[in-house]
Amino acid sequence: MLRYLVPLVLFIVLAGFLWVGLHRDPRLVPSPLIGKPAPEFRLPLLKDPGRFMTTADLKGKVTLFNVWATWCVSCRQEHEVLVELARNAGVRILGLDYKDSRPDALAWLQRLGNPYVAIAFDANGRVGIDWGVYGTPETFVVDRHGIIRYKQIGPITEQVWKDKLQPLIEKLRAES
């Protein structure tokens, strides 16, 4: 009995590990910033280089901090979802335009619409490094105290919004 049971159990354990492994994306590296205050930064705005966005601007309201660029293919796909969310879900979205060209970015917003309350322009990607950005698009959920609560790596789709972001934002809004 045992001689059949042991290999069977071993097989099931191994198959379990492999099964879980199949559904994990190795490109998703967990961020050490979750639960920590948003990194300090001060960057000129995309639309008005004379004005600045700082870490303080993230506080006060639950915010999506979206890192994007015009050279990023999946940002194009994500953009429509962001426009929709800004219009209908009443969520505040701040942007970080990462290693981009100003004219390209402005033309992109002109053409595709602008879901952002404000966009910081990170020309050399220094602030991106402080946020642990390693691929665009990335989106951080920041609570009203300026604490990073979640990081979405890859585009926000309607599925991602429904399954993860919306419930989380509702929960954060309910927090005092």
């Binding site: 590296v29 967990p30 961020s31 050490p32 910033l33 490094i129 402080d130 946020w131 642990g132 390693y134």
Partner: peptide
Amino acid sequence: LVARYGDF
């Protein structure tokens, strides 16, 4: 680097 990107 670990503070930004983790042990990874």
